[in-house]
Write a protein that binds this DNA or RNA. Structure first.
Length: 476
DNA sequence: CCTGGAGTTGTCCTA
DNA sequence: TTAGGACAACTCCAG
């Protein structure tokens, strides 16, 4: 029997286009390993919704490994050292992670294992371009998306072509201290977990079904449909990307192949640009590891945030009295996902109408999103708050009523998540407080009882936000 | 070196 | 009813 080699899986739970598995398979009997890292990831341990997703991902990929996926819990350094000793593995393979703590953890482990004579091979399995390979002519990092993408990325060497799914020889000996999946306790002891996973088919095959369906049926309408939250206009591939059930390279090349038809140019370009936004988030996090907690624009360090526990709670629970906001927050709670446009609206509401710190929004999203991604989450919250790279201008304050009327004109998104408003006519679906008493009563709506009254005044809070933003201007 | 146009996702007021 | 301008400051980048 050949010497076994370890593949340490993290955010790359797929068999195809997985460089670590691909190259390990050429070397010997593969020991696929997943470790629930209980050391600490800098206060960013995997959130509850993501752990649900992870549970099902591991279950699914374990089938692909014929039940030979080895699960552990603990400090990866310790687990791997022990495992190498016990199995006689001579080499370990992994695909890179790009969050600050993972980079530090992996480079330390790499150094230690190498000093013990173990070969360590790491690959890019989750980005189109390595963050250190894209820079301006003067060598510094881009700060604006469009030149980053158009000049920096598109003029660089193209992403590697996806790798095929290798034939594997699997290591089959017993490892006495490995865990079963339930022993990892990834699922919360709460019925909420079922709501989340009922909405998703979690596997590498499911990711591909989604991509094929998206490119064949939905790409052509992507430009317009992606803004309408009641439609399935977006790809919803984000959680699969986050856990690596599909790779960005697979999406990049497959969608270009399928979208290479007259009339699809613009839609394809817009879709690829969304993948590039994911890249840009990782790029920003790599070059500014502090963005998970610190304002990129330090002027915001003196922004007069308020923290009102009750208002925060109303936002979290989707009880603000603004239907599009509440529908979004309840979509998040029920499905672990929220439509992109609605994410912007609830973000703007928390940060600008409520003047609460973006940290609170980022934390809640981190815990409740199945696609929670430290890079995208941090960069996007800073974007909404106005303190990030290429941020939304301070005066861009979304009006939840106007946005609701524009992007959910028939209220079908709102009604899906707020059944208590089902019978309200379209005319009042985004402004129930303006409905005459007779209309409310006919619809069975009692404001303040079956559905909340608005918790704030949009006009006043908008004005307060403009003043707060003007208070931190450089010239003042 | 300087100069000027452009930059993910809006809203409100005025004419 | 609809279109246009105001609402900052700053970075990137082509000329």
């Amino acid at each position: 029997m050949t010497t076994p080699v370890i593949v340490w899986l993290r955010h790359d739970l797929r068999l195809a286009d997985n460089p670590a598995i691909f190259y390990a398979a050429q070397q010997g009997a593969v020991i696929p390993v997943f470790i629930d890292d209980t050391s600490q990831l800098g206060n960013w341990n995997t959130g509850a919704a993501s752990r649900c997703w992870l549970h099902h991902s591991l279950e699914s990929i374990n089938h692909e490994f014929e039940g030979q996926l080895r699960l552990f819990k603990g400090n990866p350094q310790d687990v791997l050292t022990q495992l190498i000793k016990d199995t006689g593995a001579q080499a370990i393979y992994w695909n890179r992670c790009y969050t600050p703590h993972a980079i530090a953890r992996d480079s330390s482990i790499k150094q230690t294992l190498k000093s013990q004579g173990v070969e360590v091979f790491s690959y890019n399995g989750s980005l189109l371009w390595e963050p250190w390979q894209v820079s301006k002519a003067d060598g510094t990092a881009y700060k604006v998306f469009t030149p980053f993408y158009r000049k920096g990325c598109l003029n660089a060497a193209p992403p590697a072509e996806p790798l095929s799914r290798p034939k594997l020889t699997l290591f089959s000996e017993q490892i006495p201290y490995q865990h079963s999946l339930p022993e990892l306790e990834l699922l919360p002891d709460h019925p909420w977990k079922n709501q989340i996973t009922d909405h998703w088919d979690i596997s590498e095959d499911a990711a591909w079904r989604l991509l094929r369906q998206f490119t064949s049926e939905r790409l052509s309408d992507y430009q317009d449909a992606r803004d309408i939250p009641s439609l399935e206009g977006t790809s919803t591939l984000s959680p699969y990307l986050q856990w690596g059930q599909i790779s960005p390279r697979q999406i990049w090349y497959y969608s270009q192949q399928q979208g290479n038809k007259p009339g699809l140019e613009d839609a394809l370009d817009t879709f690829l640009k969304e993948l590039a936004w994911r890249e840009f988030s990782y790029y920003q996090l790599y070059h500014n590891p502090g963005i998970t907690t610190e304002n990129l624009n330090q002027r915001f360090n003196r922004f007069p945030w308020k923290h009102e526990a009750e208002q925060y709670h109303q936002w979290q629970q989707g009880c603000t009295g603004f239907p599009i906001i509440d529908a979004g927050m309840r979509e998040l709670w029920q499905t672990g996902y929220m439509h992109n446009r609605v994410r912007m609206l609830v973000g703007s509401f928390l940060v600008k109408n409520q003047l609460q710190h973006w940290h609170y929004g980022a934390r809640w999203f981190w815990d409740t999103l199945v696609d929670a991604d430290l890079a995208s989450n941090s960069a996007s919250w800073q974007w909404v708050a106005g303190c990030g790279t290429d941020a939304a201008p301070y005066f861009r304050i979304f009006n939840p009523v106007t946005q609701g009327q524009k992007f959910d004109p028939d209220g079908s998104y709102v009604r899906r998540y707020l059944p208590e408003l089902t019978d309200l006519p379209n005319r009042y679906i985004h402004t129930p407080w303006e409905a005459p008493a007779a209309v409310l009563s006919k619809a069975g709506v009692v404001l303040g009882s079956t559905y909340p009254l608005p918790i704030l005044d949009l006009k006043e809070t908008r004005q307060a936000a403009l003043e707060a933003f003007s208070s931190i201007k450089e010239t003042v």
